[in-house]
Amino acid sequence: MEKDSNITRKVDEFLQIFKRGEEFTKDLIKENERLRFRIAELEESIEKTGSEGRIRLYEDRIKLLEDEINSILDRYKKAEEENKDFAAKYVDVEAENNMLANLYVASYQLHSTLDFNEVLRVVMEIIINLVGAEKFAIFLMDDKTNELLPAASEGLSLNEMPKVKMGEGTIGRVAKEGVSHFTENMTDTATSGINAANPFVCIPLKIKEHVIGVISIYSLFMQKTSFSNIDYELFNLLAGHAATAIFSSRLYTQSERKLTTIQSFLDLLKEKPRR
């Protein structure tokens, strides 16, 4: 009997322990579910906040890169403008350099000789090679008759060139007034033929205000369609430097000739007493 009650008690104890175990397991399962739910919630939330953060981060990076691109583009535009500016300046400097080289060579050649014919040849070379004139003539003033006489020509026969009186026609007027003459429309002159008395360009050869002759140009080479700055500078140079070169070479040639005459005369005088 006592043995039976002992077994019953043990069974009860076991059942109680079992029930507590069951309740504990149920609690554990509930807790487990709750925790799993919470983990899921947290995971979802982490995932949400993570992608948003990354998007924000990317957006910031994109903005930063866009700013950087804009800044680089601005700098590129500025550099490009600067480059264009430099290129334009380079072209100007080159043109200036070309002009100075032409003027230097012209001036150097004009004053490289005291031979009158050589000076005329140099003047003609400059007009042909540096200006690009095809047909032209150089007239020099005859102080005795006050007429302009043709001294040299290119592309035209010197015999066909007229003597021009001071103040007569374009050539005479330029010689009288000492002011260069340029025809506005060069093509008109080219098509209308050549009139020796009316060149389309006429430059006075002046020493200060004294005109010693003129250069008259009738046509240019076919590849030369208009005058540039360098041509006007060359005309200015020719007006002054060609005039002094021609004048001084003429004086030198005359003095050489006189010297030879005087020397011959002196030799003759020296020889006379011997006879």
Binding site: A101, N102, Y104, V105, A106, Y108, Q109, S112, V122, E125, I126, I128, N129, L130
Partner: peptide, 12 residues
């Protein structure tokens, strides 16, 4: 043959 042109070309 032109000394003027020779000098100018030489310059360049």
């Amino acid at each position: 043959d032109s000394p003027t042109m020779r000098q100018l070309i030489g310059f360049a």
